[in-house]
């Protein structure tokens, strides 16, 4: 098969940017949850501050992809590679926002002690983190099996979130004075659950990239 040097180089640049975005989001999520667990305000501030880098990378992907469409007029899978890169970068950017939102919860709690040790949140975050890496790998390797596996991981995150809500509700009855903190923790659970949904969206886009058809893995 003949190579289209400029185009292939452009696609490689897109891939590298997506990997960088994925690595950044994964790091932001881990740091944000760490900051919450340890009431580490400095770490939370760092996550909050670095979100701008992710937005810049998304812009870069939009610019590069647009240039490739204009100059190379790709069709079929080549075109889908760019469309999918746009969609994945948008999902990753949103995931970054959600990680930043978790860090902002740490900042809002301002060092107050946790009403209970965090168990479900780090567990959910760990699954979501794996999903972030898998989503990028499924794009790189055009691996649809991994995309479908992520849909199962997402179900697990959803179940953990439901269980966490039930637990918070029970705790709320016992310690109504902790309601403000519990609402914040509930929000963190929701943010992680959304991050997993976005990772699943990436899986859907990988299936679209490979097959040209769009499945619904988030239902």
């Amino acid at each position: 098969m003949a190579r289209r040097t400029d185009f292939d180089e452009g696609l490689n640049q897109l891939r590298e940017l997506l990997i960088r975005m994925g690595t950044h989001v994964d790091g932001a999520l881990k740091e944000a949850v760490e900051s919450l667990k340890n009431s580490d305000l400095a770490k939370a501030e760092e996550v909050n501050r670095r979100d701008a880098e992710l937005n810049a990378m998304e812009e870069e992907i939009l610019e590069l992809g647009s240039q490739l469409i204009i100059t190379q007029q790709p069709v079929a899978k080549d075109l889908r590679r760019i469309i999918v890169a746009f969609k994945i970068s948008s999902d990753l950017e949103r995931m970054g926002d959600l990680a930043r939102d978790i860090a902002r919860v740490t900042i809002r709690m301002d060092g107050q002690p946790l009403v209970k040790p965090l168990i479900d949140i780090p567990h959910m975050a760990s699954i979501a983190s794996t999903m972030i890496s898998e989503s990028i790998r499924s794009y790189m390797d055009e691996n649809t099996d991994l995309a479908y596996k992520m849909a199962k991981d997402d179900d697990e995150v959803d179940e953990l979130y439901s269980a966490m809500l039930r637990e918070l509700y029970t705790l709320l009855l016992d310690k109504p004075e902790s309601a403000p903190q519990m609402m914040l923790l509930q929000m963190v659970g929701r943010y992680i659950e959304r991050i997993a949904d976005h990772a699943t969206n990436i899986g859907e886009n990988v299936v679209f990239l490979v097959t040209g058809r769009r499945p619904d893995l988030n239902s």
Binding site: M1, A2, R3, R4, F7, Q72, P74, V75, A76, K77, D78, L79, R80, T211, G212, R213
Partner: peptide, 19 residues
């Protein structure tokens, strides 16, 4: 044909990767 061609030779040609 221009989105999901069945034959890899079609995909190579329309993607400018033929030859």
């Amino acid at each position: 044909l221009f989105s999901t061609p069945e034959d890899s030779r079609t995909e190579d040609y329309i993607s400018g990767r033929f030859g």
